[in-house]
Design a binder for these strands. Structure first.
Length: 573
RNA sequence: GGUCUUGUAGCUCAGCGGAUGAGAGCACUCGGUUGCGAACCGAGAGGUCGCAGGUUCGAUUCCUGCCAGGACCA
């Protein structure tokens, strides 16, 4: 059974409504919405029926509510709405068992994408340049989207498409002659220093810039010596990137780059030039489409003969299709590139590629306020270091207070720091811009990664003290409103994961986890005042067992969700 | 100039692709731990949902125009 508990009940409710109204269930399904929690779990509004039936909406609702009967649902009319509430049993047991039996796979659905392949192009830094903080968006979004699709049964091909070809390369090479230490050619940090110096100098010194261009021309011409230098830089960079990716728990199926298509461009152009709709204009090669008003034509080759990166992306799209036969090709790239991708995809379509519409630009907004005091970009590694530093203060504090026994406090601080940084980014809806703020990013309270990690760790501890969950328990004992609220949050994960995949929107998962953790914390805190509301309630084994099962399901939900987000889940902190 | 995107509480952001309470976090005020870990929980205060029209029984949500920020292209 791959459909979730929630979707099964929802479908049953829609089906019952549909047969009562004598219409297809497919017409009703979209109108079944989440209800106000005070009134139930599902609602159906009768307003649209009023005209046809010539009756007041409340009367229609009352009539419907009387005729409907669905196992597991309590159906009631409230004003003009027909509301359904999930019954304590068997619904609660279904939800808890679904989560607990799935474990870390909870929320996923191995059948959903079986046999399908998606490529995810993400992170894609330029070599010899630092990975700046803003790379966190493409890197985490892409990683998380890849995780989500994998959980839904897709074959995922993550591609780190390096900017490893271009003028900036000449800049590093020429800069290295001036500022570089040959002994440190394997040192990524050193290359970054060189790049920064060379870049500033080129901005004020045209001759220097010209030398860089010249070096790149040698690369393009296939000059063996230039290519050797380039390759050394490239390898150093990739090694450097890998240490950062390892820090974030990210591995790519493929690390390649623009240089892959170097030397193949003429063939691609030739092939494209034969397609209908491609023509020469003023010495340049353009794609001739029925353009919308004021839309610029798509340039494939400039009149000086150089190719543009649109052309390179066309070549890459074709190459990837040949290699992977993808059902979806996702490009997790900043919003700035929206026009570029629109043009590339339209060109593919004009070229008659039947898979052109499988390509999707997963765009995201900018991060503002990223400059340091010196006007340099903030590097991702530095932010991770700072977050780790901040976390380790708290870890030590907890150790000294005897609340925490950790055999690896350093690793723990790293995990918490990463959780703060990753979640700080992923909680934002991808389309929106946001402002970088050290205090917010390094905060561990409120809507943060460490808040989620903490909720998880705390509950692991309770489960351990409670001796784990017994083989059988009675879910109908979970009658507290706080318990039911928690069950409802746990229930949502599979739906939310599906939505997140469809919308390429990990923030949906992030926000659900906050809701789960909040419901869990509220429940947990009840026991501070009232001992009979503790999870580990004394003198009532049956109740304690049921609560342990609920707690365990919450733990699973948090762990599974955090894992999808690429956030570590330490068991104590 | 054109296109795209954003405008909701002091700040940072959700929500709403029509419908039963406008929400969260931070900051602020107050309160909660002799006991499951307080990186927690509760209460209070705080908003003409950018402005103006339109469609509708109903618009923060949909449509149009305008204003403002951001980006891309020329």
């Amino acid at each position: 059974m791959s459909s979730s508990v929630y979707s099964r009940h929802r479908a049953a409710f829609a089906q019952a409504l549909a047969s009562a109204l004598g219409v297809p269930a497919a017409d009703i399904e979209p109108q079944v919405k989440p209800a106000d929690p005070a009134h139930g779990d599902l609602s159906f509004a009768t307003f649209p029926l009023a005209k046809a039936q010539k009756k007041a909406p409340p009367a229609i609702a009352a009539g419907l509510a009387q005729t409907l009967s669905v196992p597991g649902l309590e159906i009631k009319a409230v004003g003009p709405y027909v509301n359904a509430r999930f019954a304590l049993m068997p619904f609660t047991a279904e939800v808890l068992d679904a989560a607990r039996s799935a474990g870390l796979a909870y929320g996923g659905d191995a059948d959903a994408g079986r046999g399908k392949t998606v490529t995810v192009d993400y992170s894609s830094p330029n070599i010899a340049k630092p990975i700046a903080f803003h790379h966190i968006r493409t890197t985490f979004l892409g990683h998380c989207i890849a995780n989500i699709y994998r959980a839904l049964g897709w074959r995922v091909e993550g591609i780190n498409y390096l900017g490893d070809w271009g003028k900036q390369f000449g800049l590093v090479a020429v800069g290295f002659q001036e500022y570089g230490d040959p002994a440190r050619i394997d040192d990524m940090g050193h290359l970054v220093e060189v790049y920064v110096k060379a870049n500033t100098r080129a901005e004020k010194e045209p001759e220097f810039d010209a030398k860089a261009r010249d070096f790149f021309r040698r690369m393009e011409a296939g000059d063996a010596e230039a290519l050797k230098v380039w390759n050394q830089f490239r390898e150093t960079s990739i090694r450097g990137f890998k240490t950062i990716y390892a820090r974030m728990g990210i591995e790519f199926e493929h690390i390649e780059g623009e240089s892959r298509y170097q030397g193949k461009m003429d063939a691609v152009i030739e092939q494209i030039a034969k397609k209908p709709g491609v023509k020469e204009s003023q010495g340049a090669l353009i794609v001739d489409l029925p353009y919308a008003e004021n839309e610029p034509p798509i340039l494939l080759k400039k009149n000086d003969g150089t190719t543009l990166y649109a052309t390179r992306d066309l070549a890459a799209a074709e190459d990837r299709y040949e290699r992977f036969h993808y059902d979806k090709a996702l490009y997790v790239v900043a919003q700035d590139q929206a026009l570029h991708f629109r043009q590339v995809f339209r060109t593919l379509s004009a070229m008659g590629q039947p898979w052109a519409d499988r390509c999707v630009h997963v765009a995201f907004g900018r991060i503002h306020g990223m400059s340091t005091r010196k006007g340099l970009v903030v590097q991702l590694n530095d932010v991770l270091d700072e977050a780790k530093e901040r976390a380790s203060v708290k870890v030590k504090e907890n150790q000294e207070a005897g609340r925490l026994q950790s055999n690896d406090p350093d690793l723990l601080a790293e995990q918490i720091g990463l959780g703060a940084i990753a979640f700080g980014d992923l909680k934002h809806k991808r389309a929106s811009d946001y402002t970088f703020d050290w205090d917010e990013v390094l905060s561990f309270e409120g809507h943060t990664g460490p808040y989620l990690q903490y909720a998880h760790a705390r509950v692991v501890n309770v489960l351990r003290k409670g001796g784990g969950v017994p083989a059988s328990y009675d879910a109908s004992l979970l009658t507290l409103p706080e318990e039911q609220a928690l069950v409802r949050e746990i229930m949502r994960l599979p739906e939310v994961v599906k939505d997140a995949a469809e919308q390429y929107e990990p923030s949906l998962v992030a926000r659900l986890l906050l809701d789960v953790a909040a419901a869990l914390s509220r429940y947990y805190t009840l026991g501070n005042q009232e001992r009979d509301k503790r999870i580990l309630v004394e003198n009532d084994d049956a109740l304690r067992f049921a609560r342990l099962a609920l707690t365990d399901a919450a733990r699973v939900t948090l762990a599974a969700g955090l894992t999808l987000l690429g956030i570590p889940t330490p068991e104590n902190m």
